[in-house]
Write a protein that binds this DNA or RNA. Sequence first.
DNA 1: TTTCCGAATTGGTCAATCCATATGTTGACA
DNA 2: TGTCAACATATGGATTGACCAATTCGGAAA
Lengths: 251, 251
Amino acid sequence: MSPSKEKKGESVPSLDVPSADQVVRHVALLIERGKLRPGDRLAPERELAQELGVSRPTVRAGLHALAAMGVTESRQGAGTFITEGPPRLGAGPLSFLAALHGFTRDEIFEARKVLEVGAAGLAAEQGLTDRLAPMAEEVTGMFANLTEPQTFLVHDVRFHRAVAAAGGNPVLLALVEMVSSLVYETRRQTVERAHDLKESAEMHRRIYQAVRDRDPERARAEMARHLDLARMAQASEEAGFLPSKVVGSAS
Amino acid sequence: MSPSKEKKGESVPSLDVPSADQVVRHVALLIERGKLRPGDRLAPERELAQELGVSRPTVRAGLHALAAMGVTESRQGAGTFITEGPPRLGAGPLSFLAALHGFTRDEIFEARKVLEVGAAGLAAEQGLTDRLAPMAEEVTGMFANLTEPQTFLVHDVRFHRAVAAAGGNPVLLALVEMVSSLVYETRRQTVERAHDLKESAEMHRRIYQAVRDRDPERARAEMARHLDLARMAQASEEAGFLPSKVVGSAS
DNA sequence: TTTCCGAATTGGTCAATCCATATGTTGACA
DNA sequence: TGTCAACATATGGATTGACCAATTCGGAAA
């Protein structure tokens, strides 16, 4: 079954496939061929090691890499599983990039603006009525927690997620969540200083109404305006509070 | 320096920190504190193992995870280094997501549209003249290779990268590259069937001109139009060629 | 039939060892 | 004296073997 067991010192030492990558490629192949679907369990490490002709630590290295990419999850005693649930991109890689290259708050908000304005437009165009309820719910949650900044923030984040979801594009949703999570950690530390939570809730409500009314242009405009104001609000919250305006907390 | 050396069977077994994550967190901390910058070399695995009080295989597992996130690169005999170069997000995670959840070509193009239309708008607004040359160069390369589809495609991809770069936002650039790379592999297999390469080159030229003229609205419109046409073009190229319209080739 | 315990399964970790590659040093040779 | 090749060292890559810890599931007992 496995003619790949080549001796090392052979005449042609050209094909050097890093063994750890072999595991990743193997899993990738199984996924592409549909043999592995979300929630499925992978073969035990010991079996994988034998199948691929590598040692167990090598298999483990590959599985760690897959786990870091959010592809798999391992539970001691149970097994290794393909990640279930909605498509998500881990925030880790972006967080590291942010910390390493010193992304600024403004840059991140600008990226959010592009993503979320687009998502809001799509949401209004699609007009999927069953996606409206989650948005409305979060707006309600915001108005109900004007004096509880932390709770308010949770509804805030979930509202933006709901808008992206209403866009109906899983790729965009994954990107929005990845970038949003970059801001979330920072924001959680400064939201206590926020004033005008009411004004923020009103803006979210206007975004919701625009989507509900299937008015893409208004949805885009309201989202753009909201993110601009949110950016400035956070800037003032951070004033003299955080040592640097550089974001980045690796998960 | 490290009082974290807790015995396992102690009276309070509550704090179970998966050892592999310890390595990731350790590196993350060093990065956040500015002790590690792109290009720097990490301590040797054996030293890290001793510092953190874990075994070397565990350290290796953590380093593999970091490598999978694109944070580090290891070179046998030399050491492990923080990834250098421009901020990049690996395409691996998105590829897996695409394969697992069956993202369609249309969904990916829609996401590209949001990202790249936004980037084109930013590029035109910024008007950084020193970012124009790379774009012009790729357009020239496309016109010079109308009969060489593979070469044409390379310039095509690089043009879109150049536009995103001209937007001046590293976050957006990283996202554009990540999503674009999803399409690239598929496209490379079908581009031979393309006709109207000349028309495609013309469209790119118009995008360039709009950015050069600092006309954001036109830049957005041209990019949107281009991506719509490119989507349809690829659909016809794929007709009866690829077994499925589902994208996804994990790197 | 229900409940509980224990064996088998499986991931998590460690230790020791060897190999492959890169790098720096040293010594021989021109 | 200068240059280059061979060797020693540092470091990541991988293996073997073993043991621990958490989960799962089946069989025994109530």
